[in-house]
Design a protein around this nucleic acid. Structure first.
Lengths: 207, 207
DNA sequence: TATAAAACAGGGTAACCGGTTTGTTTTGAG
DNA sequence: CTCAAAACAAACCGGTTACCCTGTTTTATA
């Protein structure tokens, strides 16, 4: 029984709708967190009915897992892994990523934090499926930096760190922690302070 | 109209009950987060009725703020600020705290994460009162480490860092980030790796 | 074109949420 | 001992939650 102004033609675009749902879910989880985001919020923001949402994602958890494995992983890949792997050295790549992100945050005026760390803090204790998915991303993040540092060293680049794995772990830890403080302070300066302290030239020999 | 097995004597202990509520709230927020913890959870865990809870804390937010300013701040004071300030040097104090916490986590077999960072990630974007309270703790944490590093330097301790504020910021960032990874991996080893990389003896002069 | 499957619409629901209200019990100052 | 205030108990509220169910429309395949 069509209502008066029923849409004449409905275009089925399952993949497009799925991506739309993930778009709004990714943004909402980043702004408000997983628990604080209701399915109603997502339906409203995506302009999607409950039936459509339930068709693509049977549960809220399924949306969360898809956001993590498809969107958060891709974001890490794009902002960290690729820039570092194509840089002149691991140390130089890390320095550039820190600077780029700090500039971005200053430009937009507020700090929403690292998507991976935001979700990791909220979900890794609550659900082991979430935890496993998030840990995989952390591991890949560290491994990619360590690989770059290793290839620097093997290539005779003295700019590299002594221990590739330690350098990678430190990089991710410092970024995560600095971003945590930046988010709490709503000020990106802590990112610069930490990057400088971390990547400063090692003292040649104390005077 | 007393029920059959009514408690004969009720002991009015307002302060004790308040502390009991904060006890269970602190634990629940640490385990499940603020949003995922319902007032019903707290009532059940504390053995308190809704009326009593509402008498001490008018809103859930009031409980959250009290946990932050009374419990989380005290925890940072106890596990970080006091040990570092009484250590032989800032660097040595930081090293000891890292080791102590890693040992504790190994002993208990699971990682719940840093209470301050857990709440900071979940609440600092949602509510500015929460954010301000959390930022104050971060600032005091950094300041106390920087003060120690400054007094090292002024005392002629060459073990100290070049820049006290930078050292303090790096320390908090590395701890926060390493704990974030430890929580996601449910493995404390990342704390040790990062502490070693951070506090390793500076290379005297490359061979 | 016939037909099954997929895609979507939208109302419905039971449980639960944070918070309040009302009323009873205990305490302690005068 | 009196009695007002504090401390506590328990029922209760409207709103929201995640999820489900039934039915309709579109699309793919034959």
């Amino acid at each position: 029984m069509p209502e008066e102004a029923r849409r004449r033609t409905r275009t089925n675009d399952p993949e497009g709708l799925r991506q739309k749902i993930l778009d709004v879910a990714e943004a909402a989880f980043q702004e408000k967190g997983y628990h604080a985001t209701s399915l109603g919020d997502l339906m409203r923001a995506a302009g999607v009915t409950g039936g459509a949402l339930h068709h693509h994602f049977p549960t809220k958890k399924a949306i969360g897992l898809a956001v993590i494995s498809e969107r958060v992983a891709a974001a890490v890949e794009e902002t960290w892994i690729r820039p570092v792997s194509t840089a002149s050295s691991a140390r130089d790549g890390v320095r550039n990523v820190f600077a780029m992100i700090a500039d971005e945050l200053d430009a937009q005026g507020f700090v929403r934090g690292c998507p991976l760390n935001n979700l990791a803090h909220e979900l890794s204790l609550a659900d082991s499926d979430f935890r496993a998915a998030l840990e995989r991303i952390f591991a890949r993040w560290r491994d990619s930096i360590a690989d770059k540092a290793r290839s620097d060293r093997d290539g005779g680049n003295s700019d590299g760190a002594t221990d590739p794995d330690g350098f990678a772990a430190l990089t991710v830890a410092i970024y995560s922690g600095a971003m945590s403080m930046a988010k709490t302070a709503q000020d990106a300066s802590m990112l610069r302070v930490c990057a400088e302290g971390f990547l400063e030239v090692r003292p040649r020999s104390p005077t």
